[in-house]
Deep mutational scan, measured.
Amino acid sequence: MQRVNMIMAESPGLITICLLGYLLSAECTVFLDHENANKILNRPKRYNSGKLEEFVQGNLERECMEEKCSFEEAREVFENTERTTEFWKQYVDGDQCESNPCLNGGSCKDDINSYECWCPFGFEGKNCELDVTCNIKNGRCEQFCKNSADNKVVCSCTEGYRLAENQKSCEPAVPFPCGRVSVSQTSKLTRAETVFPDVDYVNSTEAETILDNITQSTQSFNDFTRVVGGEDAKPGQFPWQVVLNGKVDAFCGGSIVNEKWIVTAAHCVETGVKITVVAGEHNIEETEHTEQKRNVIRIIPHHNYNAAINKYNHDIALLELDEPLVLNSYVTPICIADKEYTNIFLKFGSGYVSGWGRVFHKGRSALVLQYLRVPLVDRATCLRSTKFTIYNNMFCAGFHEGGRDSCQGDSGGPHVTEVEGTSFLTGIISWGEECAMKGKYGIYTKVSRYVNWIKEKTKLT
């Protein structure tokens, strides 16, 4: 034993070699072989497995989906700052455009905790909710729209109204504003409101030439003092309507412009014939205590009207009353817009006519005020429907199939267009061939041609 100890002390290297040989010859039971080890760690190889990531292109799944990435790591994937920024906006807080917040056709661009709407022409605001041009839906104005110097929408209202708090709607500024039905039992019968379409306001006024200088022999019209197929109006439903009495009662109609003036057809009036105007009328054979009678003290036909040349060209006249009318729910003026808007309103496509005229061709006159909704007829169809001249200051309205029309005794009465609950004068009943005849239409004086003249002559002093 002493000898062994001496050998170990003198030859430590020998001992180490012996131990190493023993270990190498022993069977290893701690580690699995290569094949079995792979069965336990069965993990798919990654895209760049075996390579240094710093030297390969980034992978979106590896960089940002398996674990949260930084902007720089995302930049490695896209290799483009702009594309990385677009991805980053949604990656950080989701897609803010998912709810489609942009209105009126706006395009949404996502941002971090926010979004941006790219608005089409005519709109602005956070969600493109603000109209900035009158060309689109009248700028959301209830009545009139004008573009300011910086191309912003400025709404306005006709006389007797003021802008509401929203700067879009119009509200009454006087007790009985024009064009409004205020009798409670008839307010439910107000005709369907007309909503502004998209309009090209630059070209809204037709490029028409008034044929002022045409000389033409007097034409022989049949029954051209021209509501057939209409309905009984309720008291106060058309408070701007008046009836004219002269040699015979209810020979023509008219509309209240203001307390002192009536507008009617020029062919209705004769110099030297006494005319009485009755406002607030409903049943011409009954006294309903809503009527107001006034005498006409002055007749002003349009300066281009000449019955000797043509009885229905420039067929418009103004009547001055001896005493002002007292405005109330049964006696209310009709609204008159400017030339541009009167023309736009007419193009809405349908209007209402009213009167006490004959209820059928050569038949009896109506006792109760009649009204009828009539569609506008395109000019080409209008011209083809008659052998008589249709001037540019006239328009056609009615039904091709016949059966409904204005008729004798309705002449001078109103053709009105309702705009968001307020009625505007767009025409004056003038003439036609018979009444409600198939293929024939009622012919009306186009008020847009005469609004400046009306307003100039009827100013209240």
Rank of each mutant, 00 (worst) to 15 (best):
L346I: 06
Q185N: 09
E27W: 03
V296S: 03
R373N: 12
R180N: 02
V451Y: 05
N151L: 09
V451T: 05
C170E: 01
T190Y: 08
N36R: 11
K234N: 07
N138V: 05
C252S: 00
R162C: 04
E193Y: 12
V273L: 14
Q167S: 12
M8I: 14
I344P: 02
Y22T: 08
A380N: 09
D405R: 12
L460F: 11
L376V: 08
K188M: 12
C396Q: 00
S430P: 03
D338Q: 05
G351M: 02
G13I: 15
C396A: 02
E61P: 10
E231H: 13
E288N: 06
I428F: 05
K39A: 11
L41C: 04
E129P: 00
D410G: 06
E142A: 06
L52E: 15
K247G: 09
G105M: 04
D33R: 09
R83G: 12
T271Y: 06
E456A: 10
Y352K: 02
T287E: 14
R43I: 09
T381R: 11
F87E: 13
N295S: 13
L189H: 13
V56C: 05
P172D: 04
L372I: 15
T209C: 06
G442N: 12
F71M: 13
N127R: 11
H302T: 02
T389S: 07
L376G: 03
T186N: 12
G236I: 06
G442K: 07
I7A: 15
H267A: 03
N104Y: 03
E434D: 15
E67P: 05
C157H: 01
E10I: 15
E124V: 03
G229A: 13
E286N: 10
V77W: 08
E193G: 14
Y341T: 13
N104F: 03
E259Y: 04
K146Q: 12
R43N: 15
W240H: 02
C157G: 01
N213Q: 09
E27M: 04
M437R: 10
I17F: 08
G398T: 03
G363E: 14
N258P: 00
A164C: 04
H415I: 03
Y444A: 03
S354T: 14
K387F: 05
E10W: 14
Q57R: 11
S182L: 05
I344W: 08
E259D: 06
G280N: 02
R62L: 10
I210A: 13
E76Q: 11
Y312M: 10
V30D: 14
H267K: 06
R191P: 15
H400L: 13
K152P: 07
Y201W: 09
G229P: 11
G229C: 11
G439Q: 08
A308P: 05
L244Y: 03
Y115N: 01
D410N: 09
V183C: 05
N452T: 12
S329E: 15
G432Q: 08
H34P: 10
I344H: 15
I7F: 09
W88F: 14
P414K: 01
I299V: 07
G94R: 14
V368H: 12
L163T: 04
W356L: 09
P239H: 01
N42A: 11
I284R: 13
K293W: 11
A9Q: 13
E66T: 06
Y341H: 06
V92E: 15
Y441Q: 02
F399W: 13
F196G: 14
S220L: 14
I17P: 02
A337W: 00
F360Y: 15
I300F: 06
I256W: 01
N147A: 13
N59C: 05
M6A: 14
S156A: 11
T287V: 11
G349L: 04
I136E: 09
S148E: 11
G280W: 02
G50I: 10
H289E: 11
T287C: 07
E285S: 13
E420C: 09
V374F: 02
G402A: 15
E67F: 04
D315R: 01
K45C: 04
E270L: 15
E54R: 08
G246I: 04
F31Y: 14
C145M: 02
A149P: 10
I275P: 05
R162Y: 10
L383R: 14
I262C: 03
V153T: 14
S204V: 14
V227D: 15
V273K: 14
I112A: 15
E27L: 03
F251E: 08
F71Y: 08
M6V: 11
I275H: 05
G246K: 05
N59D: 14
S187Q: 11
E193T: 06
G442A: 15
A265Y: 01
V368W: 04
T194G: 11
T29R: 08
K293P: 05
V227Q: 06
C18S: 07
F399K: 04
G105K: 04
I297Q: 07
V248N: 11
T133A: 14
G349E: 04
K387Y: 05
I443F: 06
Q241G: 06
C178G: 01
L425Q: 02
G230I: 15
E418P: 11
F251D: 03
